[in-house]
């Protein structure tokens, strides 16, 4: 059985400069595979440092799996990949107790989630039963099989990919499960230049093979410890609450963001701030994260759907109306237009 790390065993926090260097190294490593998507790569790393899970949602062939694998490869830690298929069973994910005839006892065979990084490919192709098996692991970082609870390692991150186009024979993720993903990102097509470079570089072989780890689990644990200590001022906490509350009041949204969303928003913001070498969170961090962290959790009203308004656009629009904490534009009110 692999070593287990509780949350208290993260190790000493890292100085900001070292953190930045480490992060840059990881980002740089991943960028050798994923061309021209630094923001996406950074966000993925931020989610890892925020102890969250990542949902990558996009059309086939834009590098969803590659991003997940590149991130996994860049860190020297245990990595498991699950290809979700309709016949995948929950026990394949969590593990199964097998009768050992030598010991005359049941022995637990850990499933795929017992790893630092779990890459769940095409997660929406698995049956809801299997999907929900992943739920407990993601939120509670533990697995319970036959009444025995096994703790998962730290860092633990699920990177799931799903394809929104081909819906035939898929089981779209239920709301509860979507809410467990800290962030959802869309890869988007690469820019023409990046695509050209990609043709040159990746034409010969898979660059993933040449990728070597630049960090290890211990370092990541220290990074996580550092991120936890990033300062969030009181007004910013209020700001986060305001943002989440606004999604619940918006007439365009049928379902607003959950309290967990606010928590994860702030946590990811901490990671983003740390990645930029700051020891404090700014509203800019929150604003930048509103779409990836909140958009996949909310459900638009039928009217908004009819108006072809995406949840991305709706939450982005909402956050633009909330005054920034601490702003004092002259007399502290309204939108000052010249």
């Amino acid at each position: 059985m692999t070593a287990q790390h509780t949350l208290d065993e993260l190790g000493a926090p890292m100085p900001a400069e070292q953190l930045r260097e480490t992060a840059e190294a990881i980002v740089g490593n991943i960028e050798r595979v994923i061309e021209g998507k630094p923001a996406i790569v950074r966000l993925a790393l931020a989610v890892l440092l925020a102890e969250g899970h990542l949902l990558i949602e996009d059309v086939p062939g834009v590098g969803k799996t590659k991003l997940a694998k590149a991130l996994a490869r860049s860190i020297d830690c245990s990595v498991r990949r699950i290809q979700f298929t309709p016949d995948l069973l929950p026990s394949d994910v969590t593990g199964v107790s097998v009768y050992n005839q030598e010991n005359r006892d049941f022995e637990f065979k850990p499933g795929a989630v017992f790893a630092n990084l779990v890459v769940g490919d095409e997660i929406n192709r698995a049956s809801p039963k299997t999907q929900s098996a992943l739920l407990e692991c993601m939120e509670e970082r533990q697995v319970t099989v036959d009444g025995t609870t096994f703790r998962l390692q730290t860092p633990f991150m699920v990177i799931a990919t799903q394809n929104p186009i081909e819906m035939e024979g898929t089981y779209p993720l239920p709301e509860a499960q979507r809410d467990r993903f800290t962030a959802r990102i869309a890869m988007g097509y690469p820019s023409p230049d990046a695509e050209l470079t990609m043709l040159d570089l990746h034409g010969a072989g898979d660059p993933l093979d040449e990728l070597s780890p630049v960090s290890d689990a211990d370092t990541i644990r220290r990074l996580i410890a550092t991120v936890r200590r990033v300062h969030v001022s009181e007004p910013l906490k209020q700001y986060a609450v305001d943002i989440v509350a606004t999604t619940r009041q918006s007439p365009d949204l049928r379902l607003g963001a959950s309290p967990r969303a606010g928590l994860q928003l702030l946590r990811t913001a901490r990671a983003v701030a740390a990645l930029e070498g700051r020891d404090y969170v700014t509203p800019d961090d929150l604003q930048a994260l509103v779409v990836p962290v909140l958009a996949h959790r909310v459900i638009p009203t039928p009217e908004a759907q009819l108006a072809r308004r995406t949840t991305d656009a709706i939450v982005a629009d909402l956050v633009r109306r909330i005054p920034v904490p601490g702003a004092r534009p002259g007399d502290g009110r309204g939108h000052w237009q010249g």
Partner: peptide, 12 residues
């Protein structure tokens, strides 16, 4: 404000 630049309060 004096020079009539735009100053939205939702801007950091």
């Amino acid at each position: 404000v004096d020079l009539r630049y735009e100053v939205p309060t939702s801007e950091t």
